[in-house]
Simulated assay, not measured.
Amino acid sequence: MGDSFSKKENRNKKAKAKEDKAQRMKERKANNNKGKSLEDMLAYVDENGNLSAVPPKETRIEIDSKDIQIGATPRPPEDTTRTGIVTFFNTSKGFGFITDDKSKESIFFHVNELSEPVKEKDKVSFMRERGARGYNAIAVRKADPGAKTP
């Protein structure tokens, strides 16, 4: 008993596909791009960002190391002493709040940071310190009565 027509056809298709594949492999080996020199594979970028096969003309610019700035530009030092008005002070609990004249924000202070006793609506000078919940006033003292407000 022989093979059916469709089996013969499938076998012939597989053989043809195998031959085609072998032919393509031979063509690839014949036209192999391997073995190019390094110079043939290099591409250059000119000053405008365009690719070219020709190396650009060598131009060197001398830069003085003193002209190179590394890092962020330094900020001018902040005025550390500020003024404000005591808006709230609880003597029994030992804390209060000062409204800063410059930023108009409410800043916490503790009685341990007072250099002299204060009461509400007193004009004070202080320094700010970053705390866990925002700014705290430290070194709080009554402002001079003749001092100018900003």
Rank of each mutant, 00 (worst) to 15 (best):
S6P: 02
K7H: 10
K8H: 08
E9K: 15
E9G: 07
N10R: 09
N12F: 13
K14R: 11
A17G: 03
D20P: 01
Q23C: 05
E27M: 12
R28K: 14
R28F: 08
K29S: 05
N31Q: 12
N32M: 08
S37C: 02
L38W: 04
E39M: 09
E39T: 14
M41F: 01
M41V: 09
Y44H: 11
Y44I: 07
V45P: 00
V45S: 00
N48M: 07
A53R: 13
K57L: 10
R60E: 11
I61F: 07
I63P: 01
D67N: 12
I68F: 13
A72Y: 07
P74M: 10
R75G: 05
P77D: 05
E78G: 06
E78P: 00
D79K: 14
V86T: 01
F88C: 08
F88I: 09
F89T: 01
N90A: 06
S92W: 04
K93S: 10
G94T: 10
F97Q: 04
I98V: 09
D100E: 08
D101M: 00
E105P: 03
E105Q: 12
I107N: 03
F109Q: 02
F109D: 01
H110M: 14
V111L: 06
V111T: 09
L114E: 02
V118G: 06
V118A: 05
K119G: 07
K123M: 08
M127E: 09
G134D: 09
N136C: 03
N136D: 06
N136P: 02
A137P: 02
A137N: 03
R141D: 10
K142W: 08
P145C: 05
K148A: 12
P150V: 10
P150A: 11
